[in-house]
Design a protein around this nucleic acid. Structure first.
Lengths: 225, 225
DNA sequence: CGCGTCCTTATAAAATCCTTAAAAATGGCT
DNA sequence: AGCCATTTTTAAGGATTTTATAAGGACGCG
């Protein structure tokens, strides 16, 4: 799953330099020398955009302004302008980073990778929510220093709730989430599992599962409340 | 909804400078001078962390390494070290940005806001009307800083009214909206819910539900009053 | 066969919803 | 303006629904 990056710069030397740098990280790079040729629809296939600010024809800021509303991926500016006003303007347009020339290849790679990592939900198969750490590979949950003695079903329900923290699921939805197909089971079986999960979490004084009366259950969102 | 930011730095002058800058954007700032006192559980309530790299006791890199697995908000480093190796190391630890001292206040604000902006762009189906924010996934309504203790029926009626602000609904229509069609219930039950909704909203001094005499109820379209 | 997990059933507890009834408000009428 | 019919608001109580808890049995696996 190679991340796709589009680099827009009129300076061909710069283009080849940037490409060479990013290809070391295994990204797939496309280049474009003419900002006016960049349409929003085209950008939607990329995971990250690198725009030079100063270009003949259309500059990077104008390009960003033109496509930002329809493009959701991170946008990074490359610029020689070190002026603070320009930097603030860039961020104001919805940019995600602003790399000042001259920059080192290492810094460029580090910043690009940092944004991509956050964007593509990196292949980290662990998740921490509300004081519980889930190892989705090993299928174990850890609270504090000890692993929680969850059964398979309990772990599956717990992980599903934590993965979609804040969203409410009915018992039927949770049952399906665990068994995949439409296995018509008694919803009260889910209630039983919820009870056991809460009991096992109580030892660590954490209770992240809220019940939404008449609807179902949800994992309490950490940020909001 | 004010974003919460934690700043960790041993330099008290720097702390107050950073706080003053970020508070201009309406963020809620907490500070901590001792990195060793920062625990993962504490970090989970913040939307962004600002860490100084060079600190006595534990440095920023070590702190980041210690908490990154359990914290998924953006982490930004503040540093005087301009060396490329340190920068790459910082990003390698899962950092999201690296701000070199001396930095301008404008740049600090711009970068912090850029990360917060992207963080908030999460696909949460929310609706804000008349001072009340509805999270349709979590099935909760929030006014000001606290969630409203709506029951299922109250929330459903309230959301339906807010979603179609300005449109008048009879009690029967509202009843159907909540329970689907053909649920012939006493319309006065709806009046009961309206009363409870208004009572719970009164604590926040907002009263967006108007009664149209002889017809039904509607959510005031404009916040004019 | 023993063990653990999962499901079912039964009962208690909790919360919500609906009904009922009376008080207050509104609009139309003379 | 004053009165009346209608509608809305408010209040309280019981009925209903939903959830929590506990115990027992079915099933699969080693």
């Amino acid at each position: 799953m190679m991340p796709k990056v589009l680099v827009v710069d009129d300076d061909l030397d710069m283009l080849s330099l940037v490409c060479a740098a990013l290809e070391k990280d295994g990204h797939q790079i496309d280049t474009e020398a003419d900002a006016l040729a960049v349409q929003p629809a085209r950008c939607q296939q990329y995971d990250l955009l690198l725009l030079d600010v100063m270009m003949p024809g259309e500059d990077g800021f104008s390009l960003c302004r033109r496509i930002r509303a329809e493009v959701d991926c991170p946008i990074l500016f490359l610029t020689a302008k070190a002026e603070e006003a320009a930097l603030v303007e860039g961020f104001g347009l919805g940019a995600d980073d602003y790399i000042k020339k001259p920059f080192s290849v290492a810094e460029l790679r580090a910043r690009v990778n940092a944004h991509l990592r956050r964007e593509v939900r990196q292949p980290t198969h662990t998740l921490s929510r509300g004081g519980v750490r889930f190892d989705m590979q090993a299928k174990v949950a850890i609270a504090g220093e000890h692993t929680l003695p969850f059964t398979r079903g309990e772990y599956a329900i717990c992980e599903h709730l934590a993965l979609h923290a804040g969203q409410v699921f009915t018992k039927e939805q949770l049952y399906e989430a665990v068994f995949g197909f439409e296995a018509e089971g008694d919803p009260s079986a889910v209630a039983e599992h919820i009870k056991n999960i809460r009991a096992k979490l109580k030892a660590d004084a954490i209770n992240p599962i809220e019940t939404v009366w008449g609807v179902g259950y949800k994992w309490r969102k950490t940020s909001a409340r």
